[in-house]
Amino acid sequence: MLYYVLKAISWLVCCLPRGGCEVLGQLLGNIAWLVVPQKRKNMAIKQIKMCLGIDDREAVCIAKESTVRFGPMLFEVLRFPLIKKNPQRYVHIEGLEKLQQGMAAGKGAVIAAAHSGNWELMGGAFAMAGIPLVGVAMKQKDSAADRFINEYRTMIGMHITYKTGVREMFAMLKKGWAIGLIMDQDTNRHDGIVLDFFGQPTNTTPGAASMARFQGVPIFTSFMHRDEKGFHTLLVEGPFYVEKTQDKREDIKRATQLINKAIEEHVRKYPEEWFWLHDRWKSIREEYTDIDFTQLD
């Protein structure tokens, strides 16, 4: 039932003018900010202060903007049937030629991205520009919601696989596809490696560097920025190659640290567009007792 409700809402949203959707998206985002639990808000505000070194007032503003933007982002996803018809009205890719040249050999590439800007549109923008892209997604708990979002992702050209589909990722990479990986979320300590992020020891997923090293393919970083008029710029940098020495772990650590640094630089430039409500240091608070992570509780 939920699937058909979402389809109906999408149809209605596509009937509305773009400006009207922006207004409704902002309204929805402001409502979302009101219902976010205060404990989660406080955690986001404290993370912002810790990372950016700013005062309470500015941190609250960034935390709110970071949450409110989910409203317009949702409306953009619902408007994918329209966006796919004329994507240049919504997004421009800076550095697309770098990615095209890096993939010209037919060996594929790894795109390291972050939860900044509209990351759902990011993968579609690449696909609509002719880049064969595999979006790596987390399966939604609700099967109807999962069916809907994956249908809309594939509608704008992406091939979707779940995080558990590692074999499929490597198979698609060998066929010359680009694998899109989100690299800025906390992971379990067994799978992660601790590196620097905003001057703090941070548990980081090594997936992009590990995959690129194994297959000998380039890594590109990619981040979205949305301006005040609702137009997106997709920024691509690279290629970066993972060194292949006898010390595999160090090779992966060095490359992953470069990705962390690139994400940090982008977040510092556009802090209101990052997903601050995510508890980035959750998995290592107890382990690193010499760092005052208790302030984030």
Rank of each mutant, 00 (worst) to 15 (best):
E286Y: 01
P132I: 05
E65T: 08
M169T: 08
P132T: 06
K98C: 06
E243W: 00
P206M: 03
A32N: 04
P218S: 10
V242P: 00
V60G: 02
A109W: 01
T233G: 13
K64W: 07
H266S: 02
T256K: 01
E272Y: 02
V136I: 14
L121F: 12
G95K: 07
W177C: 15
C14W: 02
H266N: 07
E286D: 13
A63H: 08
D191E: 13
Y152T: 09
D184L: 03
I54N: 10
S210T: 13
K174I: 04
F170W: 06
P239R: 07
E264I: 06
R213Y: 06
G102D: 04
D56E: 15
K84A: 07
V35F: 09
L34I: 13
I179M: 11
Q185H: 11
P72M: 02
K229L: 12
L195C: 10
G106M: 03
I83C: 05
I160C: 15
Y4P: 00
E97G: 02
P132N: 09
D279C: 01
Y152L: 14
Y4R: 05
T204N: 08
E58T: 10
Q200S: 09
N30P: 00
T154N: 14
E228K: 14
A209V: 03
L181I: 15
M158V: 11
I193S: 00
R153D: 12
M224C: 14
F70W: 12
Q101N: 04
S116P: 00
F231N: 12
A109P: 02
Q246H: 11
W11N: 04
P81E: 08
K84Y: 02
D56T: 11
R89Y: 03
T289G: 02
I156F: 10
E237K: 14
A125V: 05
E237Y: 08
H278C: 07
I156L: 12
V60Y: 09
N260I: 08
G25Q: 01
Q257N: 12
G157H: 05
E273K: 05
R226W: 07
G95V: 10
S210D: 10
K64E: 12
W274L: 09
T187W: 03
Q140E: 12
V23D: 01
T245M: 04
A129Y: 02
L78Y: 08
F197W: 10
K282Q: 11
M169L: 15
T202E: 09
M122K: 01
K174G: 15
L181F: 11
R40S: 11
R249K: 14
F170T: 15
K244D: 05
M103D: 02
F170I: 15
I252H: 00
W11A: 14
G71E: 03
L99I: 06
